[in-house]
């Protein structure tokens, strides 16, 4: 069989490279019995279309940012609560705690989760140093979903919607003063062209997940299904390692290009931890009993 696999990001992104390797592994393990053609950078389906196209069987397999589904169920937003899990160890523990529920919610839509890999942690990009949240008070802060909007509000900033392609112009012309994103995106958008300070908050590690249409998956012969599952398990391990290496690598690149890289001050860390506390509570109000169990399991894993 030949499977088309839409993915949202370009070929130079480590998530895509990991997927290419995954596709090669599957082809090798099945002796070419299952070829996966990766359509990167939204070239077959754009990011907003990918989840539904896999669910509808237009593509058997695809990759999507988990928190893109946050409006469908709060559980998909658990990896995007700022300062709940802000290191690879914590992110791992949170993923172990939340994975069964994520799988269950996806199964209800006829989707099977294969694996998930985090982006490097989300950090703050500004033109001025940030010593405390007071430095962000009244600043236009880029928000692209409900969680980032709430985060901006809690920091006293003004949440501002800026489309991805518009970010350089928006910084250059003062429509936005700060954004929070990974070092990867910072490097790929050459953030040093329009910002000068990187505050390494690593606020949360959002994950991309690779999902497959359950019905089409089960239509495969047993050995091919096993090959996919094996390759997926390897891709998850490999992806987490790539992500950690990427974090150091890209922060170094930011430095090389003249950005001031700094650790959050004690004041800022305290303020941010408090915001994290608030946002976790707010998420729990939304996620109810299920959410409570995930957070308890997470704390147990730590």
């Amino acid at each position: 069989a030949n499977w088309d696999m839409p993915t949202p990001y370009g070929d130079s992104v480590f998530h895509t490279q990991n997927i290419q390797q995954f596709a090669e592994d599957v082809a090798a393990a099945t002796d070419g019995g299952l070829e996966i053609t990766v359509h990167s950078a939204g070239s077959l389906y754009a990011h907003p279309e990918i989840k539904d196209s896999v669910r509808r069987g237009l593509a058997p397999i695809g990759e999507v940012l988990m928190s893109r589904l946050a409006n469908e169920d709060p559980i998909f937003a658990v990896d995007s609560i700022p300062f709940l899990a802000s290191s690879y160890d914590e992110a791992r523990a949170l993923w172990d705690a939340s994975r069964p529920l994520v799988e269950e919610k996806l199964a209800a839509q006829g989707l099977t989760l294969l694996y998930a890999v985090p982006w490097p942690g989300q950090s703050i990009y500004t033109q001025e140093p940030v010593e405390s949240t007071e430095d962000l008070e009244g600043a236009a802060f880029r928000a692209y979903n409900a969680a980032t909007e709430r985060l901006a509000q809690l920091m006293g900033a003004v949440p501002t919607q800026i489309e991805t392609g518009d970010i350089p112009t928006a910084f250059a012309t003062g429509r936005v003063d700060a954004m929070i994103t990974s070092p990867s995106t910072g490097v790929s958008s050459q953030a040093w062209d329009f910002t000068s300070h990187y505050t390494d908050t690593q606020a949360w590690l959002p994950k991309n997940m690779v999902i497959v249409n359950t019905q089409m998956f089960e239509g495969l012969p047993e050995d091919q299904r096993q090959a996919i599952m094996d390759a997926a398990a390897e891709a998850e391990t490999r992806g987490w390692e790539m992500s950690a290496a990427e974090t150091e690598d890209k922060i170094a690149t930011l430095k090389e290009n003249g950005m001031t890289v700094s650790q959050p001050s004690d004041t800022l860390s305290e303020q941010l931890a408090e915001i994290g506390e608030t946002m976790t509570q707010e998420w729990l109000e939304n996620a109810g009993e299920e959410g409570q169990q995930v957070i308890e399991a997470y704390e147990g894993n730590m």
Binding site: R56, N71, A143, N145
Partner: peptide
């Protein structure tokens, strides 16, 4: 109909 059946909502701040 598919969106109705799966209660699909938009991605932004207001679903």
């Amino acid at each position: 109909l598919d969106s109705l059946q799966f209660n699909s909502v938009s991605y932004g701040v207001i679903p």
